[in-house]
Each structure stands twice: as C-alpha cells, then as structure tokens.
Design a protein around this nucleic acid. Structure first.
Lengths: 226, 226
DNA sequence: CCTCAATGTGAACGACGTGTGAACTGGGCG
DNA sequence: CGCCCAGTTCACACGTCGTTCACATTGAGG
C-alpha cells in the first residue's frame, strides 16, 4: 500500500501511534511543495492534514492537493473543537474531518469508511515475487508486466507455490493443498500443470519453478542461510 | 425544509438540543415501519439513527432506508466508541457517523458537510467507468451516451459490479450482495442476468463484463497499480 | 557406457462449466 | 380475467480445462 501523506512533520504522537497500529504506512511533510516532491511513484494513498496548530498552512496544503490534475483523495482533516465553526463545510476542501485528540478507533473507522467511499480503499491483495505479480482480487497474473492467461488450476497452483517461495513441495502435498485434501488422482497431473505454467511464464522465466529431483517442485530461488 | 428522520423516539436530549439550535426540523420514529408511515410528502431530508442503545433495530432501520427505490440520504449514524470495531464500514449502510455523546458543534458540522456532499452536485451520485454511466439518483444508465433500458435487477447487478471494477465476484457473492443476504436460489440466475446485461450493453461493450471461469464474473479491466 | 528411475512432452479423452433459448411463475394493471 | 413484464428455472449444446496415457528425454549410480 502506498503511504498516506501527513502534515505537519512531525505528526502528533497519538496520530502516529494510531496509524502504525492500523497498519497504515505514512510519510510526513512540512510544506505543500514537499508533498509533491516526496510523492511516491503510484501517488499518495490519501492525506491526513492536521489543521489545529497552523490552520493557514494546512488549508493551503488542502487547496494545493485538491487543485491537482488528479485531486488527492481521500483527505481527512484534523481539527480541534473550536475550529468547527470556522470550517467551510460547503467547499470541497476535504472529505471528512476528525476532532483532536484523535482516538485510535475513530480514526481507524473514518479511514476505512473513507477508503471504501472513495473507492480507493480496497487495495488489491498482491503476491509479488521478482517479475511475477498475482492479483488475488482479480484473478489475474502477470510476468514482467506482461499479462498471463492462466486457467483456474494453473492460477491456483502458481498462487500456492508463489506463496511459499523457496520451499519444496512434493507432488502429494501439492495435490492435497491445491487440489484438495480429498483429491485422489495421479501425481503426473502436477507435472503437466507445471509444464504448462512454465510454458506460459515464457522461456526466460520458466526457471522460476525448479524441479527437485526425487522430491518435487520449488518456486523461486533457494533461500540459503537462516 | 423537510424534517430529519430520527431514531429512536424519544431521541437523546443533547441531540434534540443540538438540532433545535441548528434549526433542523425533525421527527422521531420507533420502528422502521413508522419511518415509511410518517414520511412527509417530499420525503425525509435525511436521517440520524442512534445505534448505541438498540443496535439491531437501528441497523435494520438503516438497511430498510437504504433499500428503498430512492435510498434515503444522508444518513448519519450515532454510535458509542465501543461499537466502532463492529461497524461494517465497507458497506453502504450510512454516509457518516458520529460518536455519542454528540457535541453540538460537531453534529452541526457533520450535517452541513453531509448535506453539501450528498446534495449539491459536486459529487453527483454517478458511477462512471469508461463509456458506462450509472445515475444512482434517477436509476438511469447509459453506455457511450446511449441510454440503456435496464430492469431493476439488471441495474442493481450492474451497479454492484461497476462499483468494484476489476474485482472478481463469485455467483454466490453476487447473489448475497445483490439479491439479498437471505436469498436462496439457483446460481444460474446470475448467468442469465449477465447475459441480458451483455446483450443490452451491445456487442462492442459486452466485454465489459468478463467471465472468469470456475470463479465468477468481473466488470471492467484490472487495476494493476496500487 | 549402460541401466533404470524420474521427469518432460505431446496428444487424446472425458467431465464440467458456461452460454443460450425457451418455458414457467408471480405480480401489476387494464 | 387475461395480458404483459420481470425474474427465475430448466434443458441442451458447445467449448474449455483437467486428467491420463504413451513415449521421449534427462540425470544419477554402478
């Protein structure tokens, strides 16, 4: 997940604690310019702007973030009770606000709701290993940014293997874990699916799945050490 | 101004005071049925549902209000801190929430913001995806500027799918989310509705809904990044 | 170098999932 | 009462995918 943009820097300790507990990555900035300069490749996941200390700069930051070609969403504003009367609630300056001091549960709830509302919330769950990307939500796979057209079983097998990179699985284990505990069928089935996977991965990436003779198959490189 | 719908009856004193001070007319109800029976000619202006005392009834009321032909908006939920963890924040059950005991200033601010957000079109209730446009207010749909004549279920299905572009849903999930939690019927029902949707979308846009074999259906293209 | 076991490969079969047309049900309305 | 429409269910055809088999190839050990 991309980080949340925080203002100011450093953010309030209880905010940091709430975000860390909630598992939200974040990066704090001191100026609107820094928000652009430090922006991640894929953009900010959203922004939390505390306007209780220095309202002027905070609102300027909000305006800047909203005026971009792609307005930053969602934007959560932190204010103290006395500021509520001054807020221009009929302007599109922020999506939601929260009173300071923030409570972990409320902040978490507002973020969840915001992400859902703005549609940016359900970040797809990904499995990534080197050039391989599996999108568990959309059931799509890609190798080196090239989409892979996998069948259901191919996808499931690759997903299982890629979930445990480096580990070797016997055919029997794969059959029971991927095909199902009650499955009874020939072990060669695994071979054939591995072959088709390698073919679809392409010659240069076929080695992602390696054969461990007399044992089974392994995805990815060996993890030496530990 | 039309009155706000309040639950329960009588509402908490501080809520009444806050609303009266803010100049909001209101009418309280004790049951979901009463919400329909007492509804003004021009509908409710919105709803404030307190879920701290009797959550079950409160949530039932929310569901009922949202399932109407024209979902009631805005809906503000009142909860106490301990309930935050139980809320399904990723469901369209309410628009905003507020912790009890309510503070006059915060309630006022949230109502203002809510009315602005849901009322004045800066955020028209539209779902857009490529050539597809769904107008949630008027229950109209259009593809490439050509109006679509969808039935209720077709519209609901398309709306749900288009709300989560890229994500794959199983038939069971679609049945429970679109048809209703308690629905029990054949999964082929989904197939048929998807077929009719594709037919109405027209040949060139039929691919907007793609079949993921052995899994279910997906609307639109995959979102690779984030 | 030989042998055997393990694995890769290509092809073919069969089962299952999906699309499709059509029939059925139930409610609204004249 | 009968028509119409939306939603559901059914039956069948077709294509895809998973599985299996026969055979080729590889690799390890003697």
């Amino acid at each position: 997940m991309e980080p949340l943009l925080l203002y100011p820097d450093p953010p309030a300790p209880e905010l940091v604690q709430a975000l860390d507990l909630g598992g939200y990555p974040w990066k704090a900035v001191t100026t609107p310019e820094a928000a652009t300069r430090l922006e991640p490749e894929d953009g900010w996941a959203g922004a939390i702007v505390a306007a209780d200390a220095d309202p002027e700069t905070a609102f300027a930051l909000c305006r800047a973030l909203r005026k971009r070609d792609i307005p930053l969403e969602p934007l959560l504003l932190l204010v103290h009770g006395g500021q509520l009367g001054d807020l221009d609630l009929r302007d599109d300056l922020f999506d939601d606000f929260c009173l300071v001091p923030v409570r972990q549960a409320e902040l978490d709830a507002r973020l969840k709701h915001l992400f859902w509302r703005t549609g940016r919330g359900t970040r797809p769950e990904l499995i990534e290993y080197g050039p391989l990307v599996l999108n568990l939500e959309t059931y799509q796979a890609a190798i080196a940014s090239r989409p892979l057209d996998l069948t259901y079983m191919e996808y499931e097998l690759l997903k299982f293997l890629a979930s445990h990179p480096g580990k070797v699985f016997t055919r029997e284990t794969l059959l029971s874990r991927v095909w199902g505990y009650d499955y009874y069928g020939g072990a060669r089935t695994v071979d054939v699916h591995v072959r088709r996977l390698r073919a679809k991965l392409g010659e240069e990436h076929a080695a992602l799945i390696s054969t461990v003779r007399s044992v089974g198959y392994r995805f990815g490189e060996t993890r030496w050490g530990f």
